[in-house]
Design a protein around this nucleic acid. Sequence first.
DNA 1: GTGGTCTAGACCACC
DNA 2: GTGGTCTAGACCACG
Lengths: 114, 114, 114, 114
Amino acid sequence: MSLSFNINTAHPTPLYHQLERAIRFAIATGKLAIGDQLPTVRQLAVDLRINANTVAKVYAELEREGVVETRRGVGTFVKARHFEAARAKDRDRELRELEVRFLTEASHLGFSAA
Amino acid sequence: MSLSFNINTAHPTPLYHQLERAIRFAIATGKLAIGDQLPTVRQLAVDLRINANTVAKVYAELEREGVVETRRGVGTFVKARHFEAARAKDRDRELRELEVRFLTEASHLGFSAA
Amino acid sequence: MSLSFNINTAHPTPLYHQLERAIRFAIATGKLAIGDQLPTVRQLAVDLRINANTVAKVYAELEREGVVETRRGVGTFVKARHFEAARAKDRDRELRELEVRFLTEASHLGFSAA
Amino acid sequence: MSLSFNINTAHPTPLYHQLERAIRFAIATGKLAIGDQLPTVRQLAVDLRINANTVAKVYAELEREGVVETRRGVGTFVKARHFEAARAKDRDRELRELEVRFLTEASHLGFSAA
DNA sequence: GTGGTCTAGACCACC
DNA sequence: GTGGTCTAGACCACG
């Protein structure tokens, strides 16, 4: 499959935020390793059926935070500057969010605390 | 404090969606029981430092879905969930899927069973 | 008028960069004081005959760097640059609030004191 | 004029409800066909001399019920999922309401049953 | 330029 | 006092 980030256009969460999280998640879990090239802006836009500007915005934000590196005319790559601590923190955050989401979705199904 | 729903105005997720989830979560975990009155629209707005309309929108949405009941001039209350027996199986299946997904995603984050 | 930032659409320098510098300059020279509201995105776009998205991009960048503050549904304002010593007490208070919120959230997730 | 929905700001019925009915009616009677774009939120607000938020509320409600479909950044369109039965039912209901309203208004004008 | 979200504050209907 | 409706106008996300 290569890299199918999970995006839900119906969800109220902004697309750019969903995509940003998905990419960080892929990096945190190792699906994207240091030095790996990300899909091109246009290709990812086509794959996710969203606008290229939205993808570009995410890449710009990730570059601003030092997560990826853009080489003009070449592509976008996962940057080296990633401490284990940061990844552990990310994982913790993700886990917490997962828990909340799990419980919330379960409650949508009509279950009470159990 | 009574009921401090967790809202983060800096987060890109819409406030109304955060609040809706927080209330569903409170109900799911039993912090809000059936028949309990929710904070008044205006009071909750003051507590969370958000606009009353945003709170009202959430209450309206929750009422639309049968989660709460509003009595004009009185207040908003947690409704007794009416589960159609016919749907029990569906819910079970969905719950199992949720569990699997939760555990899968958690394991991707490097956690072992817990 | 009031605040005619100098923008030259013929100049090769990106408009968003020209505008950002112009706003920083206005703040540095006191034409815009702390707490002052900046023109609305759309109004400034009309005044300068540039696209609203360009103005929005500049405001977002200035907010990211702590120069301005946008209040949802209200407007964009020049931020008070906080000088460390004077605000130490405030920071302490905020830190305590952060702690409380963190612990509350953790407990919501079912964790006991740790 | 294209699409002048009938709205009466003096009438005690909430504007958003009047507008919702008017749009459903237009669809039921074929004035709005499947796939047709509805007026933009802001344009309709101007035409009806009501607030854009009121229009947006109606569009959101209609989308929630699957009557229309909104494409982010594009517009709002009549959705396909419409059975003849539903339309017939709508027409019947509308017709009855029309009759009642007509008779009521006529009686207000001093006419007796005829 | 589209719809979406949010704010502030008004007036209304209900109890 | 409660929630409901509406306005005017702000920024945001997206195409």
